[in-house]
Amino acid sequence: MKKELFGVCPYVTSQKILTGKWSMYILYLLSEGPVRFNELQRRLPEEMTHATLSRQLKQLEEEGLILRHEYEQIPPKVEYSLSEIGEKFKTVLEALEIWGNEYIKWITDKNRKGTAKS
């Protein structure tokens, strides 16, 4: 019988929580401050349906990474922000940004060297 590693291993736990295609990018957008639903949808790099974004946000809310604040007004206003544990993810995002930029440079250099040989 295989051992369940969720909640035991930090890598498996992190990977399972961040399974949504846009989870990490949504967390990045929210790291800059509260954002309304339609603004999030506009800022995502690809067309995303209302249902897909809604599902991703619900998952992140269930995991405790984000908070949903609904204002009692007409028209309705809903904002999303990072929770306390979500705020702690900012250091991970910063580290990923550094590594991502280094990897982009590595790819660019590799491609440049590849075209120079042709």
Rank of each mutant, 00 (worst) to 15 (best):
I104P: 01
K90V: 15
E4A: 10
K110E: 15
G64W: 04
T108H: 08
Y80T: 02
S54R: 12
P76M: 14
S83Y: 00
I26Q: 06
E94P: 02
T19E: 12
I26C: 05
I66Q: 01
Y25A: 06
E72K: 00
K113M: 11
Q59P: 01
K113P: 00
T13F: 00
E72C: 00
E61M: 07
S31V: 09
S118E: 12
R36F: 04
E102I: 08
E102N: 15
S14Q: 09
K58A: 11
C9M: 01
E4L: 11
T115V: 09
Y25V: 09
L65M: 15
G64Q: 03
K90L: 13
G64F: 08
E39L: 14
L96I: 13
L5V: 03
R42G: 06
E47R: 14
K77I: 13
E47W: 10
R68M: 13
T52R: 07
W22M: 10
P75H: 03
K58Q: 12
F89R: 02
L57E: 02
S83I: 03
Q15F: 11
T91M: 09
S118Y: 13
W106F: 14
K3R: 14
E79A: 05
L67Y: 08
P34F: 11
L53Y: 09
K110S: 15
G33I: 07
T52C: 10
V35H: 05
G20N: 06
V35T: 12
I98P: 00
K110Q: 13
V12M: 03
L29G: 07
K21I: 12
H50A: 06
I66T: 02
V12S: 02
L82M: 13
Q56R: 11
H50I: 11
P10C: 00
K58R: 12
P75G: 05
P76F: 03
E46K: 13
Y25S: 07
